[in-house]
Structure formats: structure tokens, C-alpha cells
Computed example of a mutant assay.
Amino acid sequence: MTKTFTAAQLGQLIASETLSPDSARLRIKNFVAKGYIVTRQRSDSDGRGTLLFSIGDALTAAVLSRMVDLGGLSKAAMQAAATRLQAWKTDSRNPARAEVGPDLPHPPAESPALRLWEEYEAAPDFHVSLHLRWAEKRGAVNCGAYLSLGDGEYYGRAPDVEPMADLLVPVTPLFPELAARIDRMGKAH
């Protein structure tokens, strides 16, 4: 059975000493309103259609919350990170660059973030980092994001351009913290 969480539960998962559960819940709602976290499910049983979020969404929320705690990065940086964590890359012009499709050996999880969680559950010594890269392209500064896995694999490899700036957000420390909170949450119900 797939675990799902309400916005309030997601808030409890990302709350910290400096971020109360209520503030974290509002942060989640803000992420959803801005389109950083994709809403894929609604509850059928509560009559209100409460939004439900996956473990991948919880990981995305934790990473984005960490970025906000770093000083509220630009909208472009938040969107690049959210898109990298929430959406698989498809490339109809160059199928070899696609991350999902009929020619790939395994069906994808709903999102790269959920795939990362599955990798962590399979091997808890799993390492991953989110990289944000600002680069000039055709006279404009663009922000892109990619994930680097400890084994040299990448999701959304950064373009081979000289970066103007890079930011590394370690994701690995979030896994055991989230896993413990999810476990405690399950035991409380």
C-alpha cells in the first residue's frame, strides 16, 4: 500500500526547531499554490477531496523547505529544483536524453523524488545531492537543476556550459530524518 499524507501531516514531517508544524503546513500550501509540488491525489473518503501527497512529495517538500531556510532563493531556483524533483524529463526530439519512455528498462516512479526514496529504502547508504546551476544562455541568465547520485548517475544532467554560480543542496541527510518521522507518524495512528 502506498503511503499518503495530508498537507498537515506533510507539515509535521518537515517541521523543525525553527519551523513550527503550523508554519510548515502553510509552507506546504504555499509550495502547492506556486506549483512547486504537484497535486496528484485527492481523498475519496473524507467528502472534501483533501489533497494527498506521496513520500516523494514529502522529500520534495523537505528539500524545498531547506532551500527556503537557506535564505529564500529566487523563484527560478525554486521552480528548477521543484521541477527536477517532481517531473521526469521527456525529450521527443532526442529520445536518448529522455528519462521515461517505452525503451527504458524499468517503469518510472511517479517522480524522481519518489524514485530517490525507493533507492534509499533499498540501500540506506544511498547518497544524492541537488545541484542548482546558473548559467548564461543567449544573453539571459537561466537556472537549472540536476540530481547527482553517489554512483555517478545523474537525473537531469546540467548543460555543458560554464556556470556563473552553483549551489549544492545535500539531500542524503533528509532521508533518515524523514524515515524516522514517517515511522513515528505511522505508530501514532
Rank of each mutant, 00 (worst) to 15 (best):
D151S: 10
V38C: 06
H127G: 08
S65W: 00
A24V: 13
E17H: 07
G144A: 11
L168N: 08
Y154C: 03
A140T: 15
A62M: 04
F53D: 01
L167Y: 01
I28Q: 02
A58R: 10
L132I: 06
V100P: 01
Y36S: 11
A80I: 02
G139Y: 05
R27T: 15
T50S: 15
H127I: 09
V38T: 13
E121W: 09
K89H: 06
E110K: 05
P108H: 02
F31Y: 08
A58C: 15
V161A: 10
L52R: 15
P108L: 00
Q41P: 06
S23K: 13
T83I: 11
A87C: 11
L114V: 01
R84N: 12
H127N: 12
S43L: 15
Q86K: 00
A82I: 01
A109W: 09
L26V: 14
R97A: 14
I37H: 09
H127C: 07
D91T: 13
T18F: 10
F53Q: 01
Y146A: 01
A158D: 00
K137M: 00
A113K: 08
R184K: 14
F175R: 07
V169D: 01
T39L: 11
T39N: 09
K89A: 05
M1V: 13
A80R: 04
T83Y: 09
D91Y: 14
D44Y: 12
G71A: 03
A96Q: 11
K137V: 00
A81W: 04
G47N: 04
F126V: 02
T2L: 08
F53A: 00
D125F: 08
V38S: 07
S20T: 12
R66H: 03
P21S: 04
